[in-house]
């Protein structure tokens, strides 16, 4: 558990550092800091689950693929919820033109089917345009490790357009942060 917590703390630190580069809105940062601090004070099992070498495959893992990021079963989307930006002019780690990425993210831990290793994925919403009207197969609801709203950092239901100039949701991305263990 301590190793797991260390892993998460490193990830949190990365997010906060990245935030510092994105924005100078101090009041927003202080609110984010409060949320992340609260999260770090709590044990975070999804990381620990992924850290276990022999973590059993979830339903998502059994069908995950690593070639097409325009499909819900792309492995990095195991805890993603929303419309895939890769179907909307962006990519799994790129916001579509004219949208603004959320400076912070919720996180998931997904298994790459090509090497069976688990990685921390940062999910950011792209914001500032009305919801992307992509084909229905691009509307996803990954559930692995997603927790209710009282575990904010792992909640994929809320619109994560915090700190963007407009909080209107357009689509969601999922980018690899690093190995989970």
């Amino acid at each position: 558990m301590s190793k797991a917590r260390t892993t998460f703390d490193k990830a949190s630190e990365r997010f906060v550092r990245r935030l510092a580069g994105y924005t100078s809105r101090r009041s927003f940062l202080s609110r984010v800091g409060a949320a992340v601090t609260a999260g770090a004070a709590l044990p975070l099992l999804p990381i620990s689950r992924a850290s276990a070498a022999a973590a059993p495959e979830t339903d998502f893992d059994r069908y995950a693929q690593a070639t097409d990021d325009k499909r819900c079963d792309y492995w990095k989307y195991c805890a993603s919820s929303g419309v895939l930006c890769s179907c909307c002019g962006g990519g799994h780690n790129t916001c579509p033109p004219g949208t603004e990425p959320s400076p912070i993210s919720w996180i998931g831990t997904c298994r790459n089917p090509e090497n069976a290793k688990s990685y921390i994925i940062a999910y950011r919403d792209c914001c500032g345009k009305s919801a992307c009207q992509a084909e229905r197969d691009c509307v996803c609801d990954g559930e692995d490790g997603a927790l209710p709203s009282y575990r904010t950092q792992l909640d994929n239901h809320v619109i994560w357009c915090f700190g963007t100039s407009s909080q209107v949701y357009h689509c969601s991305t999922g980018a690899l942060v690093g190995p989970a263990n």
Binding site: R31, V32, A34, A35, S149, T152, H157, I159, C161, Y169
Partner: peptide
């Protein structure tokens, strides 16, 4: 600013209806 999520318990009314409650998340609750 309120929380932007479609959930039942984002909004609540007291027994008499004299009070209302709105959940907010920025992302601190």
């Amino acid at each position: 600013s309120r929380a932007l999520v479609n959930q039942l318990h984002n909004f609540g009314l007291s027994l008499s209806g004299h009070r209302g409650y709105v959940y907010a998340m920025q992302p601190a609750s």
